[in-house]
Design a binder for these strands. Structure first.
Lengths: 103, 103
DNA sequence: TGAACATATGAATATCTGTTCATATGTTAG
DNA sequence: CTAACATATGAACAGATATTCATATGTTCA
């Protein structure tokens, strides 16, 4: 009865918008790099800047977007802000996407 | 040994671009509607126009994009062109995304 | 062949999105 | 308190993207 699959009949117009937004979060290279980096563990902004090769500003802007979507969270630690993935879902979605890309 | 997961060490810069492109395909409401409609079975363009509420032209343009990404395929049947999902991956990705959206 | 229908295409436009630059905020150490 | 550092933010700009409008292509049927 309590199956994990979604009942198609109750998918609203708004759900489709949310769904598009979710995938939009994964649709940019900088964001993908950020998420991929965070898959290996939490990192501060400076480290993310290094790993992505993007500007500190660009990274910060993108982190904000990802945080708003609750794909990542953060905590302060002194001067630094440490970011980490919000949950396993991100991991799963990325993995699945990568499986598809890799055929 | 032959696990389904992807070895992180062999993920290239190009893979990340492909991955972003894949998710980009799912990041627009019109395209999501198209794909969702096709999850229930193949449909001709006119039916897709009806289901999505978008213009015939808009639908046609988006179908082209989805086809180029090989997310959908089509066959001709008289005057009509019948579209259908290319494989189960699309189904799975959409399902997983929806599961996330629905919490 | 020509009319009616189904779909595709190209150019133009308006909107959205990501980056950059400059600067603000907040934190620690001296 | 101030200098040095870490991160965030806002405005401006450039490039990408989705839609529309007009029209082209292709198919069937009379």
């Amino acid at each position: 009865m309590a199956k994990k699959t979604v009942d198609k009949s109750i998918i609203t117009e708004e759900d489709l918008y949310d769904l598009a937004d979710l995938f939009k979060a994964f649709s940019d290279t900088t964001r993908i790099k950020l998420l991929y980096a965070l898959m290996e563990g939490e990192l501060c902004v400076a480290e993310l800047v290094e790993k992505t090769g993007a500007t500190q500003s660009a990274v910060s802007h993108q982190l904000r977007g990802l945080k708003q979507m609750d794909l990542i969270r953060c905590r302060k630690e002194g001067k630094q802000v440490i970011y980490f993935l919000a949950d396993d879902h991100v991991h799963t979605i990325l993995q699945m996407g990568m499986d598809h890309v890799k055929e």
